[in-house]
Amino acid sequence: SKIRITWGDKTWEWDGDDEEVWKRILEWARNLGDEELWRHVKEWVDK
Rank of each mutant, 00 (worst) to 15 (best):
R30D: 08
R24M: 13
D17Y: 10
E35S: 07
E13G: 01
D9S: 03
V21Y: 03
K23S: 12
W28D: 01
V21E: 03
E43G: 08
W44F: 14
E43N: 13
D15P: 11
T11V: 12
K10T: 13
E19S: 11
L26Q: 05
K42Q: 13
E43P: 01
A29K: 00
D17H: 10
E27A: 09
N31S: 14
D34V: 06
R30Q: 09
G16A: 15
D15A: 10
E19M: 13
W14L: 04
D34F: 07
E13H: 03
W38M: 15
W14G: 03
W22N: 04
K23L: 08
I3P: 01
K47W: 04
A29C: 06
E35V: 04
W12Q: 04
E27Q: 09
I25V: 14
G33Q: 09
I3F: 02
W38C: 10
L37N: 01
K23M: 12
W7F: 07
I3K: 03
W44C: 03
I3G: 02
K10N: 10
I25H: 00
D15G: 05
L32T: 15
W44P: 00
R24W: 07
E27L: 08
W38A: 12
V21G: 05
K23A: 12
D18G: 14
G8C: 06
R4Q: 11
K42D: 04
T6M: 10
I3L: 09
L26E: 05
N31A: 15
T11R: 02
E43I: 06
S1F: 11
E13K: 01
V45G: 05
R24S: 12
W28E: 01
T6S: 11
R4Y: 12
A29D: 00
W22S: 04
D15L: 08
E20M: 11
D46S: 10
D9Q: 02
R4E: 09
D18M: 12
E36F: 05
K42M: 13
L32E: 14
G8W: 13
T6I: 13
K42V: 12
W7S: 03
G16L: 12
V45T: 06
L26C: 06
D46W: 04
K47T: 11
D17C: 15
W12R: 02
D46V: 05
D46C: 02
T6H: 10
I5P: 00
E20L: 14
I25F: 03
K2I: 07
E27I: 09
L32I: 14
W38E: 11
T11H: 08
N31E: 14
K10P: 01
D18K: 07
S1I: 15
W14I: 04
I3H: 04
R30V: 10
K47D: 05
K47R: 09
T6G: 04
V45E: 05
G8Q: 10
V41K: 00
I3N: 03
V41P: 00
D9G: 04
K23D: 15
T6L: 09
L26M: 10
L32S: 15
H40R: 11
D46K: 08
G8R: 10
D9V: 01
W44K: 03
R30G: 08
G8M: 07
V41N: 00
G33V: 06
I25M: 06
R39W: 10
K10W: 11
L26W: 05
T6C: 09
G16W: 13
R39I: 14
G16S: 13
R30S: 14
T11Q: 09
T6N: 10
G8V: 03
K42P: 00
E35D: 12
W22E: 03
H40I: 11
R30P: 01
R39V: 09
R39Q: 14
G33T: 05
G16R: 09
R24E: 08
D34T: 02
V41L: 12
R24H: 11
L37F: 15
G16F: 15
D17S: 14
D15M: 08
V45F: 15
D17K: 12
D46F: 04
I3C: 02
I3R: 02
E27K: 04
E43S: 11
I5K: 00
W28K: 01
K2R: 12
W14Q: 01
N31P: 02
T11F: 12
K23I: 11
V45P: 02
D9A: 02
R24K: 11
D9I: 01
R24D: 10
G16V: 10
N31F: 10
R24L: 15
D15V: 10
I3S: 01
K2G: 06
G33E: 07
V45K: 10
W12A: 04
V45M: 14
I25E: 00
K2T: 08
E13V: 06
T11K: 03
K42L: 13
G8L: 11
W28Y: 02
L26F: 06
W22F: 10
W7T: 03
G8Y: 15
E35K: 07
W28N: 00
W14S: 01
N31M: 13
I25W: 01
E36I: 04
R4V: 14
G8D: 11
W44I: 15
W12N: 03
V45Q: 09
W12F: 13
W7C: 03
I25P: 00
E20R: 07
W7G: 01
A29S: 03
D46H: 04
K23C: 04
K47P: 03
E43C: 09
G8P: 01
I5V: 10
V41W: 02
G16D: 08
V45L: 09
G33F: 08
K42Y: 11
E20T: 13
E19L: 12
D34A: 03
D17F: 08
L37C: 04
G16Q: 14
D17L: 10
W22T: 06
R4N: 07
W44H: 08
W12V: 08
V45D: 02
W7P: 00
E13P: 01
V21P: 03
D34M: 07
G8A: 06
D34P: 04
D15C: 04
V41Q: 00
I25Y: 00
E27S: 08
I3W: 02
D17E: 13
E19W: 08
K42A: 12
E36D: 15
E35G: 05
K2D: 03
I3Q: 03
E20C: 05
I25N: 00
K47H: 14
K47Q: 13
R4I: 14
E19N: 15
V41S: 00
D46Y: 03
W7Q: 03
K42F: 08
R30H: 14
K2M: 06
R30M: 11
E36P: 08
I5E: 00
I25Q: 00
E27P: 00
K23Y: 13
L37I: 07
V45C: 10
E43W: 05
W7L: 06
G33L: 08
I5N: 00
T11C: 11
E19K: 14
E19T: 13
E35P: 14
